[in-house]
Lab assay of single mutants.
Amino acid sequence: LRLEVKLGQGCFGEVWMGTWNGTTRVAIKTLKPGTMSPEAFLQEAQVMKKLRHEKLVQLYAVVSEEPIYIVTEYMSKGSLLDFLKGETGKYLRLPQLVDMAAQIASGMAYVERMNYVHRDLRAANILVGENLVCKVADFGLARLIEDNEYTARQGAKFPIKWTAPEAALYGRFTIKSDVWSFGILLTELTTKGRVPYPGMVNREVLDQVERGYRMPCPPECPESLHDLMCQCWRKEPEERPTFEYLQAFL
């Protein structure tokens, strides 16, 4: 395994491009020591290896001592969030954005069929390849993070704006909380990567959403798509659509 080009840095580690087995181009995620327990990670990795779908980033291998390494397929255009905010983002029109959403829903419909939960679905965790191919990455890892700023769910590192209220408040993460996050991801797509709930801080978002506030229809977004977002944001988790439905609708 060779680490060649550093692609990015996040709160919990770095991402590199490299070569595996001398020939395969891969992405390598390294986790800061202390982010998660190697034992817990190894268990999760076994499950992650079983998830194989064309719209999920394929896991190739893991190094399960500290520092933990995760070796996955390489996606040339990086994260969907950076892609939307970058040069190419300007030229993306609604049909392409909807197609990308459908690809993500397709990957998540598979996660749904496998009775698995992602827990951290957002544009930053979707990767883009050639020809606007989108794949879901980092599934299941969020559960293992041991950082206090994260586990408190009120901490600075927790993605509260993407998280369903029952998950943020009571830790009830299910495929239905993933559906909520998918609704937020749809706003990221239609606004080219704007942060959700602009002008609001995490605490406010939690309070307002509890009181029934939902983001309005983004500019140039059809009402039918906003309606779909609002279905994803129904207060009762069981009233939210399935990913199978979302995939078919898109």
Score class of each variant (00 low, 15 high):
Val63Phe: 07
Val117Pro: 01
Glu130Ser: 14
Gly22Asp: 11
Pro38Asp: 14
Gly129Thr: 11
Lys85Asn: 11
Gln43Lys: 07
Val195Arg: 12
Phe158Met: 04
Val71Asn: 03
Leu42Tyr: 12
Glu54Trp: 12
Val71Glu: 02
Phe249Asn: 06
Gly107Phe: 01
Met36Thr: 03
Thr30Gly: 13
Ala109Ser: 13
Pro159Tyr: 00
Thr174Glu: 05
Glu238Met: 10
Lys32Val: 08
Ser79His: 04
Ser106Thr: 10
Cys230Ser: 10
Ile175Arg: 15
Thr151Asp: 05
Leu185Pro: 01
Leu84Tyr: 06
Met215Arg: 01
Glu244Leu: 08
Asn125Tyr: 01
Leu84Arg: 03
Ile184Pro: 00
Leu97Thr: 07
Ala137Asn: 03
Val26Gln: 04
Leu80His: 02
Phe249Tyr: 11
Leu31Asp: 10
Gly155Ile: 04
Ile160Asp: 01
Thr174Gln: 14
Trp233Glu: 10
Ala101Phe: 03
Lys235Ser: 12
Ser64His: 13
Gln46Asn: 14
Lys55His: 13
Thr35Lys: 15
Lys32Glu: 01
Glu66Cys: 15
Arg214Phe: 08
Pro38Asn: 15
Pro237Arg: 15
Glu223Thr: 12
Lys135Gln: 13
Pro38Thr: 13
Arg214Asp: 01
Ser181Asp: 01
Met17Val: 07
Pro196Thr: 04
Gly212Met: 04
Arg234Glu: 09
Gly86Pro: 10
Thr187Cys: 08
Asp99Leu: 15
Ile68Gly: 09
Met200Asp: 04
Lys32Phe: 01
Thr35Pro: 11
Leu1Gly: 04
Tyr150Glu: 03
Val179Arg: 08
Thr242His: 15
Met229Ile: 09
Val26Met: 09
Pro165Cys: 14
Glu130Thr: 12
Asn202Arg: 04
Met17Phe: 14
Asn21Ile: 14
Gly8Ser: 03
Pro198Lys: 06
Ala102Arg: 14
Ala61Phe: 14
Glu146Ser: 07
Thr35Ile: 04
Leu141Ile: 02
Ser64Glu: 10
Thr24Lys: 14
Ser79Arg: 03
Ser64Met: 05
Leu56Lys: 06
Glu204Leu: 08
Arg143Gly: 02
Ile175Tyr: 15
Cys232Val: 10
Met215Trp: 02
Tyr150Met: 01
Glu244Ala: 07
Leu144Gln: 15
Leu81Asp: 15
Val98Gly: 07
Leu56Asn: 08
Cys11Met: 04
Leu186Met: 07
Lys235His: 11
Thr242Ser: 12
Thr88His: 13
Pro216Tyr: 08
Ser79Asn: 15
Leu42Ser: 03
Arg214Ser: 06
Pro216Val: 08
Glu54Arg: 15
Leu169Val: 08
Leu225Cys: 03
Arg25Asn: 13
Ala152His: 01
Glu14Gln: 15
Arg2Gln: 08
Gln208His: 10
Ile104Glu: 00
Thr24Leu: 07
Arg122Asp: 01
Gly78Asn: 09
Leu169Met: 10
Met108Gly: 14
Arg52Met: 12
Val209Tyr: 06
Met75Trp: 00
Ile70Asn: 03
Gln58Pro: 11
